[in-house]
Amino acid sequence: MAYSDKVVDHYNSPRNVGSFKKEEDNVGTGLVGAPECGDVMKLQIKVEDNRIVDAKFKTFGCGSAIASSSLATEWVKGKSIDEALTIKNTDIVEELSLPPVKIHCSVLAEDAIRSAIKDYKDRRTENTAE
């Protein structure tokens, strides 16, 4: 099975690889795994005034998983939290022309975005409660 040009491009030059300190107040961290293949994906967002100003990822997995998370960081940057929550795995499938066997990689990326946003929100509520 051949990867699409876009997958190859993200795989060869992944955008926004790296990490933020997860303790920082305005950082949200999502760590998710794909049971089908044992891939692990970490996606982090940095939020200012309810807007995602920066995003980083690190993924251990196949080319499609790396491309999906790389694309996800590109897409969330500059979006408000609510806008970022509207990103669907099917958008990623379409953009990267993922074949059916690789759809779970895009699901993983959507889960990672959601779980990073949830982590950010949870930690903010904790902080305001203090």
């Binding site: 760590l31 998710v32 795994g33 692990v40 970490k42 690190k58 251990f60």
Partner: peptide, 10 residues
Amino acid sequence: FLEDIFELQE
């Protein structure tokens, strides 16, 4: 567990 796996992968 997932945190452990991520660390091991790193």
